[in-house]
Design a protein around this nucleic acid. Structure first.
Length: 497
RNA sequence: GGCCCGUUCGUCUAGGGGUUAGGACGCAUCCCUUUCACGGAUGAAACACGGGUUCGAUUCCCGUACGGGCUACCA
């Protein structure tokens, strides 16, 4: 059992791609198979600097490393980059085999000629003209030209492509593990270009040749490939390699939560990339899940449950558990809208599972960046308190800023609402009482607070919290006071009265 | 437009010829708490529609509607 993840380095790998990689990983792991990373860089015009390294880094961060392929150590089927494989002549060989058996043909049409054909067809009322069993009869190819003409053109180095000769009016039936049997009439399939005029193969030829050579047993890819699958089936048949044909699993797409269509990087409510991505040709940098504060385990858990569900009611799973339970029979057919709210919840669950010390270790670098100096053990206690309130570690910095700096109490509306001006004395009395406390621990602070009274008035908890933290909500108030320390608490109260 | 794929609470989903249609996120209410949360309890909330098949369809079949994908010498 061998599967592959085969992205093209045309930009940052987005979460849909990561999900495809994850399902491949899970499937391989479940069955003890191989998981391969193959880079499909056959389109030189769309190549983006840094994209390949990004893919590698992303898979590493996600914790789903392939055990063979670019960036992960070569196995026996290398090279794993299609641009390098091309040098071995493999694609040309496959293309020639198809030409020889009559399943493919040379086409010499220029861009202008193709454009003219499309215009003609559009005028004749065809909405999306194709190069197919009808139109190819009026084009310049080895089906319409004589053998001599073709030879002459080839000898003169006339640019050509090799196209698949799709048979007329045949039923193409294939099986998909997720969708069952799919039937398409060959009249709906166009004569796809297999080998481009620059000598590079298209996806259709390249992935197929590589899958055969790399002994891939299962092709797990996005649903966007379903319409071209019939063409791929035709190629396997023409090659006489139906016995080597992998099984197909076309995954449902991840859809935008609001709006329409596939998830896109312009969506601002949530990250779409695993790691921050900046296209060298663009200005804008897109934030990643890592930078947004997601744990890789949480991110994988979120992705796994988009389009798949093990059927029990357990939602929180480790990668190992997921792999154990993974089954294409339980993968859904319909596209799934991504839910950013639930994604946050997943991260919160994982955050609470972490020890205070672990969280502190993650927070320390951020604090140091801000110039804060202090003990990691103190930060761990802060994390312990803040844990219940936050979804992301870094929220400790915003929601718990008062643990690291003197807060500002400038919300006059709040103080007005609490009639603070009329009650200042109560808090002075509270500060004095606290000052007299011999031991500084939450229960004692609480008791003192409860006993505090001045002219029949009692202090208000929320106001007390506000005075010492600058926030109107937060973790257990007396625990907060304890951690802040006696001096600090009294100083903060007095500062405001 | 054509072709292909799909359709269970707002969202992700379980289920499957006879169920009080289950769970999760989110939302609401109550309890806990002299605050906000956390936690606990409860609640509102779904089988797209129309035809068949059947004693009986949410479940099977066919249409319709809606959604998505594809329709390049991109992947």
């Amino acid at each position: 059992m061998r599967v592959r993840f085969a992205p093209s380095p045309t930009g940052g790998l987005h979460m849909g791609g990561v999900r495809t990689a994850l399902f491949n990983y899970l499937f391989a792991k479940k069955h003890g198979g191989d998981f391969i990373l193959r880079i499909e860089d056959t389109d030189r015009s769309r190549f983006v600097e840094g994209a390949e390294q990004y893919i590698i880094d992303a898979l590493k961060w996600c914790g789903i490393p392939p055990n063979e392929g670019v960036g992960f150590g070569d196995g026996p089927y290398g090279p794993y980059r299609q641009s390098e494989r091309k040098e071995t002549g493999i694609y040309h060989r496959y293309a020639m085999k198809l030409v020889e058996c009559g399943a493919a043909y040379y086409a010499f049409d220029t861009e202008e000629e193709l454009e003219q054909m499309r215009k003609r067809m559009e005028q004749a009322g065809v909405p999306s003209p194709q190069y197919n069993h009808i139109t190819r009869q009026h084009m310049r190819n080895s089906l319409t030209l004589s053998a001599e003409e073709v030879n002459k053109l080839l000898q003169n180095n006339t640019p050509y492509v090799i196209r698949l000769k799709v048979p007329r009016n045949e039923e193409i039936k294939f099986h998909d593990i997720i969708r069952g049997w799919v039937v398409v009439n060959s009249n709906q399939v166009d004569d796809k270009v297999l080998l481009k005029s620059d000598g590079m193969p298209t996806y259709h030829l390249a992935h197929l040749a590589d899958d055969i050579e790399m002994k891939i047993s299962h092709v797990v890819r996005g649903e966007e490939w379903l319409p071209s699958a019939p063409a791929h089936i035709l190629i396997y048949k023409a090659l006489g390699l139906e016995n080597l044909m992998p099984e197909f699993a076309h995954l449902p797409l991840i859809l935008n939560p609001d709006g329409h269509g596939k998830i896109s990087k312009r969506e601002s409510r949530f990250p779409v990339f695993p790691l921050s991505w900046k296209d060298p040709r663009e200005k804008e940098e897109f934030i990643g899940y890592r930078e947004a504060g997601y744990f890789p385990e949480a991110f994988m858990n979120i992705l796994a449950l988009i389009g798949w569900n093990p059927g029990d009611n357990q939602e929180i799973m480790t990668l190992d558990e997921m792999a154990q339970k993974f089954d294409f029979a339980k993968v859904n057919k319909a596209g799934a809208k991504f839910d950013p709210e639930k994604a946050r919840w997943f991260n919160q669950v994982y955050l609470r599972k972490k020890s205070n010390e672990e969280l502190a270790r993650l927070l320390m670098p951020e604090l140091e960046k801000k110039g804060w100096k202090g003990e990691e053990s103190y930060v761990a206690r802060v994390c312990g308190l803040m844990k219940e309130k936050i979804h992301f570690v870094k929220e400790c910095l915003e929601l718990g800023n008062y643990f690291f700096e003197e807060p500002e109490c400038k919300d006059h509306e709040f103080l007005k609402k609490k009639k603070f001006d009329e009650n200042r004395e109560v808090y002075r009395v509270l500060a004095d009482a606290l000052e007299n406390l011999s031991s500084w621990e939450a229960p004692g602070i609480q008791e003192t607070f409860k006993k505090t009274e001045f002219e029949g008035k009692k202090p208000d908890m929320q106001t007390f919290r506000y005075l010492i933290s600058g926030h109107t909500s937060g973790p257990g108030l007396f625990e907060v006071a304890e951690l802040l320390g006696k001096d600090s608490v009294i100083k903060r109260i007095k500062k405001n009265i």
